[in-house]
Simulated scan of single mutants.
Amino acid sequence: MLPFSRVSIIGLGLIGSSVARAVKAAMPSVRVTGYDAEAHVRERVRDLGFCDDVADTPGTAVIDADLVVLCVPVGAMGSVGEAIRDDLPAEAIVSDVGSSKQSVAEALAAALPG
């Protein structure tokens, strides 16, 4: 049994798209939902098809997610946390690919209920 059935990726640039492709390659039955702040990026991802679903808001992207991977600049982590707070399942695991883990954790702790 796979550890996740639904993975959401917030930020579909180089790193986020690589994460999405890796999940699909390693676990093809996992449903991958992506979101990017840029509409043209979302459209390109739809065209390329490496996400099963592309959401138009960060909150919509995390509904029913088992795992959420934040692939946005470290300075944007707090605002993304706020944007997903109301739709994030309580049991979802949230991780990030930022290089400054302590500041990310502080930003998410401030934004997410707890």
Rank of each mutant, 00 (worst) to 15 (best):
1 M>R: 13
1 M>L: 08
1 M>F: 12
1 M>P: 09
2 L>C: 11
2 L>S: 15
5 S>I: 00
6 R>N: 14
7 V>C: 08
8 S>G: 06
9 I>H: 05
9 I>T: 08
9 I>V: 15
10 I>H: 03
10 I>G: 02
10 I>N: 07
10 I>V: 15
12 L>M: 15
13 G>Y: 02
14 L>M: 09
14 L>H: 09
15 I>N: 06
16 G>I: 02
18 S>N: 14
18 S>Y: 02
21 R>H: 05
24 K>D: 01
24 K>G: 02
24 K>F: 01
25 A>D: 11
28 P>M: 04
28 P>S: 09
29 S>G: 03
30 V>E: 03
31 R>E: 06
32 V>I: 09
32 V>R: 12
33 T>R: 12
35 Y>T: 07
37 A>S: 13
37 A>W: 04
37 A>F: 10
41 V>T: 15
41 V>I: 15
42 R>W: 05
43 E>K: 14
46 R>L: 04
47 D>P: 00
47 D>I: 01
48 L>F: 05
48 L>T: 00
48 L>D: 14
48 L>S: 15
50 F>K: 03
50 F>S: 02
52 D>S: 07
53 D>E: 15
53 D>F: 11
54 V>T: 09
55 A>K: 05
55 A>P: 10
57 T>L: 08
60 T>V: 09
61 A>Q: 01
62 V>G: 07
64 D>M: 07
64 D>E: 14
66 D>Q: 05
68 V>Q: 01
68 V>S: 00
69 V>S: 09
69 V>T: 12
71 C>S: 13
72 V>I: 14
73 P>Y: 04
75 G>C: 06
76 A>E: 09
76 A>Q: 13
77 M>L: 11
77 M>V: 15
77 M>R: 00
78 G>K: 14
78 G>A: 13
79 S>D: 15
79 S>I: 11
80 V>G: 13
80 V>A: 14
80 V>I: 13
81 G>P: 04
83 A>C: 08
83 A>R: 03
84 I>Y: 07
84 I>G: 13
85 R>C: 10
86 D>E: 14
87 D>L: 00
88 L>Q: 03
89 P>W: 00
89 P>Q: 09
89 P>E: 10
92 A>T: 03
92 A>H: 04
92 A>V: 01
93 I>L: 11
93 I>V: 15
93 I>K: 00
94 V>A: 05
94 V>W: 11
94 V>G: 02
95 S>T: 15
95 S>W: 00
96 D>H: 14
97 V>N: 10
97 V>Q: 06
97 V>I: 11
99 S>F: 05
100 S>V: 12
100 S>Y: 12
100 S>F: 14
101 K>E: 09
102 Q>L: 11
102 Q>M: 10
102 Q>C: 02
103 S>N: 08
104 V>W: 03
105 A>L: 15
106 E>I: 08
107 A>H: 07
108 L>F: 12
108 L>W: 05
109 A>G: 14
109 A>H: 13
111 A>N: 07
112 L>S: 04
113 P>F: 04
